[in-house]
Simulated scan of single mutants.
Amino acid sequence: MGDAPLKVLVVDDEPLATERLQLLLARVDGVDLVGTAADGEAAVRMAEALQPDLLLLDVAMPGLDGIDVARALTGRRPAPAVVFVTAFDQFAVAAFEVEAVDYLMKPVDSSRLERALSRARQHIQTRSATEAGPVQPVSRYLDEFWATDLSGLVRIAARDIDRISAERDYMRLHVGTRSWLIHHSMSALEDGLDPALFVRLHRSAIVRRDFITGFQRNPSGRWIARLADGGEQPVGRLYAENVRAIAGR
């Protein structure tokens, strides 16, 4: 992209929300607002015609919603980067499935918007450099998650997760001393995470392989995994074979 302005298309069915984004964008250098759309169908048409670098895209819209718009544009090359702007946080899982660059909660704060624009620029520059080089195979495994945070939504890289524990219909992602809940199933996470990095040790627990420091047996003969933070994770009987595979025996 070089020093070219970031071409932005704003999509929102609420006129006041669109106006607020226009005012915020007008204060940011290096941004060119190429248009606005009030529904998903118009957004797809305008994106095809105007070829924006970035969509600031509302999620909840009548008809074609923001997730549908993002999916419709993924086949275009280059596809525009997407930053979702919404009043709802329950779309976070769908957001990372369509590879959104960021996820902003309404009302949008100016400094938070600028961070999202910076992430979009970095994403586009990285993608351009990658496309200019040899074609890299695309991993089928999940490499990031979106989770609710006090400030809105936070992106969590899969490689940073120490372990995952089940809590009813939610999964808790543990990263150091912090943790976040996401609405997902344990079986879907087991299938979606790279088995070279993660292993399931219990029906309610997945652990990053290099977070395991050792194994020991309890008095009843069950395996217990020792973890890098000093904690322990019981190994379910159905997953004892995974212990033997890790230990090479």
Rank of each mutant, 00 (worst) to 15 (best):
A132G: 14
R127C: 13
D39K: 04
P195L: 07
Q22H: 14
A92V: 14
P195D: 01
Y141T: 03
V243G: 00
T86P: 11
L197N: 06
P137E: 09
V44E: 12
T74A: 14
L117E: 03
V207D: 08
L56S: 01
E97C: 06
R159T: 06
T130R: 15
R121F: 04
Q22Y: 12
V44W: 09
H202I: 01
R217Q: 05
E14L: 11
R222K: 15
F211N: 07
A72Q: 12
Q125V: 14
V69Q: 06
R76L: 09
L23W: 10
A245Y: 01
V138W: 05
L197S: 14
D194S: 09
D102E: 03
R168F: 12
R159S: 13
S128V: 12
R226L: 15
A120W: 01
A17W: 10
D169Y: 11
V175Q: 00
V44C: 10
D13R: 02
R208P: 03
P134A: 02
P78A: 02
T148A: 15
G133T: 10
E167T: 00
G152N: 03
A72D: 10
R20Y: 05
H174P: 04
L57T: 08
R115S: 11
E97F: 03
L16H: 03
I206H: 01
L56D: 01
A72E: 14
R121S: 10
